[in-house]
């Protein structure tokens, strides 16, 4: 079952990348490139894991898997936080995100120190993952709140930002408890519950792919009359 999900997850990684290439003209902006970079890095990281497992490098260097995980957490957080900060308008929120990011880097740095220089921590980096999840979920909510506050006459789900943020929120809220409890799980439970992570990654990739498909922010489309008619809303009355 897990193997089946793992295959789908790997295939799902290609979905947003292909949609990005398919709609390259529309998505030729910094924010989209940040997400693509994250996806490419995820592919490379997966490749390194497969190669290390195949070459028995994990047995030779026991800190290698945890180092790779920690590095992935830091890079993933950096890219997503950068994405959110580029999307935020409020300078106060951007500053707050920067402060939160600094706190995260301190936590992640301390964690790496314990991984590399002490033998105490050989488990997955629970605290950096949990803190990155909390920061990204909170700022995703704030970003959505900010989006609906600004009087843009465009449905929120017609914006690429929305789908990226939904992907981030679903992925991090779905895997939050998993990573938090991972060290307390038995080996068999770890394997079973890892399916949650795989499902969340698949969902995240689907949402990222949707974000590349929806049309970008074209100002000319922000015309109330040309976009909608009052009858569009009748069903929601």
């Amino acid at each position: 079952m897990v193997g089946y999900f793992k295959t789908i997850t790997l295939i799902s990684l290609l979905l947003p990348l292909l949609t990005f290439l398919f709609k390259f003209k529309q998505n030729n902006n910094v924010q989209a490139r940040v997400i693509v970079f994250l996806l490419v890095y995820s592919c490379i990281n997966e490749g390194i894991f497969q190669f290390a497992a195949f070459s028995h490098l994990f047995a030779k260097y026991p800190v290698l898997p945890i180092s790779l995980y920690s590095l992935f957490t830091i890079i993933e957080f950096t890219l997503l936080a950068y994405y959110i900060s580029r999307s935020l308008v409020s300078k106060r929120l951007i500053t707050l995100l920067r402060i939160s990011a600094f706190v995260f880097y301190v936590i992640a740095g301390t964690n790496l120190y314990f991984v590399w220089f002490t033998t105490d921590s050989q488990q997955i980096d629970v605290i950096p993952i949990a803190s990155s999840a909390i920061i990204l979920i909170v700022f995703s909510i704030l970003l959505l709140y900010e989006e609906i506050q600004t009087p843009k006459i465009k449905f929120i789900y017609r914006q690429p930002n929305f789908w990226i943020v939904v992907g981030i929120m679903i992925y991090f809220s779905g895997t939050f408890f998993l990573f938090l409890q991972l060290s307390s799980l038995s080996e068999s439970d770890k394997v079973n519950f890892w399916t949650i992570n795989l499902i969340c990654i698949i969902l995240k990739n689907i949402f990222f792919a949707i974000s590349f498909l929806v049309p970008g922010n074209d100002e000319s489309e922000d015309d109330l009359e040309s976009n909608y008619s009052i009858s569009d809303f009748e069903e929601f009355k």
Binding site: F155, M169, I170, L224, Y228, F233, F236
Partner: peptide, 29 residues
Amino acid sequence: GTIGMLALTIGLIVFIIFHQRKVIRYQMT
């Protein structure tokens, strides 16, 4: 915990979508 977190997130997203539709409908009227 996972079910709860996902339910909360989906609930929040659905709320945001419907709230924005309501605001746009009001603006249109």
